[in-house]
Nucleic acid binder design. Structure first.
Lengths: 322, 322
DNA sequence: CTGAAAGCGCTAACAA
DNA sequence: TTGTTAGCGCTTTCAG
């Protein structure tokens, strides 16, 4: 009772117990406790193999955020990867055997997985992905606000001819960022130039950015600035821009999104919108614990903001230029 | 007994039991088992914060290897990060409370941590680091062989003037790679040019590679090829080379080590020695389990080989050139 | 070879 | 407010 802060305990015995704990260097034995309470004190953290192997540590930093926060709540987190395609046979063991109190999934994933977990009534929180037809609590990047701010920044630098380099339009994050882009332009009464908006790439990788930029070069005239929907694509685009003989930011200003480590090392260093990865992970854990403990079990999306990181890939347009 | 394959069981009952297990969809309850056997079925995986946050997913891929292998042995792996400096107060909980059967540590780490774990007699395997004065089973990259092969490759391409770009000499991996470099040159009777061997950089990052290369430019004549002790430094060096107005591989051939994801995306793509990251992680887990189960508990270093990945940062020297 | 029972360390329910 | 006890699901020991 002393340990768990429940039930009535007189202050005197409380102190006596505490003292004994100290003297004996007593630690409660987690596994016995589990057996008695049916609470495992574990949470599962699932990443698709694709996301785990991403060249940049985006989702692993999110994991780091949860793991760190988990320490405060005395939870262990079991990290595992799954294939993108749903197969019962490679269900994480901790799901099959219910060795977790709840699960966090980061990144886009086959909805079958989500449906399965919901079906088994295992508490679930999603990070950076929201399925179309399923109600699940999510922790999301504020993509539309972020996209809006990114474009606003280019606008402030005097750009009026701004392209958008997005990935597959099926990706909700991309849609949000595109929406922000649209909103910022509309607000200034700048018409959208369809040929400067590239959204039909297979994925959102460096390669896609590279190809997307090459496609953009096909337009009959070119923008002066570019908003890439993530840093990987921005990096691919920079490569294409350089290969075409242009320089950054003289000929093109470019801003990314995510703030992955490598953005700092590009030439020039990439201006971008920083996503608070650790914070997202921590938030998801707190949310999950709330659900596990029955508090606040409403479906709910929580948005976490982004921040402009100014580096050197964007330039101020002098007043004569357009 | 059927489940654990021990004790005498007649084939008939064995089948009956198996059938019942199927029908009831029975899963043994891990925590009850732990309580009875005192075996947790968990292993801890520790990474220093610095390594966890490395821009490229080197150690996280090693983790992936152990996690994957752990599935075959029905272990869970608890991943956590610690600060580089030893502080009792931020001991991982799973150590304090002995919730793991053993621990894997990947990457260089303060020896205090190692001493603590050894002191508590918790089975331990190290990956990619071997402390000076402590005997601990390790899984290591075959650095000298790898360095040797890298330089042999440059030699085969006709290079005779080959520089070495290393990081801090305190790092055992770097020392091994340097040793391989030495060996390959010596074998061909090529004298070592001290001013082409850069080993007094603070770390082994992109920045260090960049600075190291600039330093190398100070030599009165320049090598035609360069062996960088890891890809990060190779990338930094490439940047410095380009800034100095040279091109790769026309003016300099360069080979790296590690094969991190980004090496594929450099311009030109970087030729490098691939380290088998997943394999190292898997190996460490098997080694750890052996120790936990009392088999084969000798101190032992196991080396895992590397493989040349030929991309486009090295060129063949024509016979007239030196 | 099979069945019964004790006990791992904890929580929860109940009696004092 | 405190002390006692059953029982969580498993392994292990011992008797049949």
């Amino acid at each position: 009772m002393v340990l768990n802060n429940k039930g009535p305990v007189s202050e005197a015995t409380r102190q006596r117990v505490l003292k004994a704990i100290k003297e004996l260097n007593y630690h409660p034995y987690r596994f016995a406790r589990v057996l008695a309470t049916r609470r495992t004190g574990n949470v599962g953290f699932i990443l698709s193999e694709k996301h785990f192997n991403r060249a940049e540590p985006f989702y692993t930093r999110i994991f780091l955020g949860t793991e760190f926060e988990a320490r405060n709540f005395d939870y262990y987190v079991l990290l595992t990867s799954i294939r993108s395609t749903f197969r019962r046979s490679d269900l994480p063991r901790f799901l099959k055997e219910r060795n977790v109190d709840g699960v966090i999934i980061a990144g886009r994933i086959n909805d079958e997985w989500i449906r399965y977990i919901k079906g088994r009534e295992i508490p679930l929180v999603l990070i950076d992905y929201v399925p179309e037809n399923l109600r699940v609590p999510c922790v999301l990047i504020d993509n539309v606000e972020g996209g809006y701010e990114a474009v606003r920044y280019l606008l402030r630098l005097g750009h009026r001819r701004i392209g958008f380099l997005g990935g597959s339009p099926g990706h909700p994050s991309i849609q949000g960022r595109l929406e922000g882009y649209r909103k910022a332009l509309a607000e200034q009464g700048i018409p959208l130039r369809e040929e400067w908006v590239i959204t039909d790439l297979p994925e959102t990788t460096i390669e896609d950015g590279y190809r997307g930029m090459q496609r953009l070069f096909g337009a009959k005239d070119l923008p002066t600035a570019l908003f890439a929907a993530n840093d990987a694509m921005a990096i691919g685009a920079m490569k294409a821009i350089k290969e075409a003989g242009y320089t950054i930011p003289e000929d093109f200003s470019i801003i990314g999104f995510d703030d992955i480590e490598w953005s700092y090392h590009t030439d020039p260093p990439l201006t971008t919108m920083r996503v608070m990865k650790e914070e997202m992970g921590a938030l998801a854990l707190r949310r999950l614990i709330e659900i596990v403990e029955g508090r606040n079990p409403l479906e709910e999306k929580v948005l976490v903001g982004v921040r402009l990181i100014e580096r050197r890939s964007c330039r101020l347009l002098s007043s004569g230029e357009t």
